[in-house]
C-alpha cells in the first residue's frame, strides 16, 4: 500500500517529504512528545524524578483548585497579562506614531527604540534588578537627588511596588516590538488615504480614527494576541527580578509551575499547571482568532 502510494508521488513530492521528514521527526521529539508527556503526567502521581507511579485522575487539578495560593496566582497572571498587554499596545501605538513623524534624527530614534528588545531578556532583568536597588540603584538615586521623589519606596521589597516594578520591566522590554510592528503597519498605509481624508475636511483626530486605526487593526489584533501569549508566559522577568517574591506576590503561573516542578519536585501538580496554562491560552487564541476572522471575512 505504502509502496503504491509512494509510487504515485512525483519525484518532487517525494523529495518534499524527504526534506520534511527530519523536521517532523524533530518536532515529534521536541514538541509533540513533551506536550503529550506533560498531559499524561498531569493526571499522574509522580516520584521526585517525575516518573509516574500511578494515576490519580483529576486529583492534581482538584488539589490546585483547593489551594487558595494557586487562585491568587491565577488571578494575578490575568492582571499581569491584561495590564502588560494594554500598556504595551497603547504606548507602542503612541511611540509608532511619533516615530512615523518626519523629524531630524528619526533613524537614530528608531534604532534606539529597539535596544530594550534587542538585549537578551535575562540581562535586562538583571540590570533592572540592580537599578531598583534602594541602596545602590540608579533609579532611587536619580529620584532623590533630583528631588522628584524624596522618599521613593524600596521597589522590590514590598509586594505592591515589586509587582509594579516587575510589570514595568516587562513593558519596557516588550514595548519596542509593538512600536516596530505598528510602525511597519503605519508605513504600509498609502498617503493618498490621508490626502483624500484631508480634502474631505478630516482633522488629525478624524484621520486617525477613520484611516489609521482601521488599516492598523489587523496588526493590532495579531500583535496583541502574540503579546498575550508572551506576557502570560513571561518567565525571565518575574523570575530574575524578584524570583516571585516577596512572599510569592509577584509569582505568575509560569514561575509557580517552575518552582513546583524543579524546586519542590512535585511534577504531577506542576504538569497540571502547565495543562491549565496551555488550555487557557489555547481557548483564548481560538476565541480571539474566531472573532477576528469573522469580522475580517
Amino acid at each position: 500500500m505504502i509502496a503504491r502510494a509512494a509510487s504515485r508521488l512525483t519525484a518532487e513530492e517525494r523529495l518534499a517529504y524527504l526534506l520534511l521528514g527530519p523536521a517532523l521527526l524533530l518536532m515529534a521529539a521536541l514538541i509533540f512528545y513533551p506536550v503529550g508527556a506533560t498531559i499524561v503526567t498531569a493526571f499522574g502521581a509522580t516520584d521526585k524524578l517525575g516518573r509516574i507511579s500511578g494515576f490519580v485522575g483529576w486529583g492534581n487539578f482538584r488539589a490546585l483548585g483547593a489551594d487558595p495560593a494557586f487562585w491568587q496566582i491565577f488571578r494575578r497572571t490575568f492582571l499581569w497579562t491584561a495590564l502588560g498587554v494594554t500598556v504595551k499596545t497603547t504606548a507602542g501605538l503612541g511611540l509608532a506614531l511619533l516615530l512615523n513623524l518626519p523629524f531630524r534624527g528619526r533613524k537614530v530614534a528608531r534604532m534606539l527604540t529597539v535596544i530594550p528588545w534587542a538585549i537578551p531578556y535575562p540581562i535586562s532583568a538583571i540590570v533592572w534588578q540592580w537599578t531598583y536597588n534602594s541602596q545602590f540603584g540608579l533609579l532611587n538615586q536619580f529620584l532623590t537627588t533630583t528631588g522628584l521623589w524624596p522618599h521613593p519606596p524600596a521597589w522590590l521589597a514590598e509586594p505592591r511596588s515589586a509587582f509594579a516594578a516587575t510589570m514595568a520591566v516587562d513593558i519596557w522590554i516588550g514595548l519596542p516590538f509593538f512600536a516596530l510592528v505598528f510602525l511597519a503597519g503605519l508605513q504600509a498605509i498609502s498617503p493618498e488615504y490621508y490626502e483624500a481624508a484631508a480634502i474631505d475636511g478630516a482633522g488629525a483626530g478624524a484621520r486617525f480614527a477613520a484611516v489609521t486605526l482601521p488599516f492598523l487593526r489587523p496588526v493590532i489584533v495579531m500583535g496583541s494576541l502574540l503579546s498575550v501569549i508572551w506576557t502570560f508566559n513571561d518567565f525571565s522577568v518575574p523570575y530574575i527580578v524578584t524570583k516571585g517574591g516577596p512572599m510569592n506576590t509577584t509569582d505568575i503561573l509560569v514561575t509557580h509551575m517552575y518552582k513546583t516542578a524543579f524546586q519542590f519536585l512535585d511534577f504531577g501538580p506542576a504538569s497540571a499547571i502547565a495543562v491549565i496554562t496551555f488550555v487557557t491560552l489555547l481557548a483564548f487564541s481560538v476565541v480571539y482568532a474566531r472573532l477576528y476572522f469573522r469580522e475580517v471575512v
Partner: peptide, 16 residues
C-alpha cells in the same frame, strides 16, 4: 537594621 530588608539577601547584605 537597613530599612529595605525585603530586597536584601545574604549577597546584597554583604555588599552593604
Amino acid at each position: 537594621t537597613e530599612p529595605n530588608v525585603g530586597e536584601n539577601d545574604r549577597g546584597t547584605l554583604q555588599d552593604l
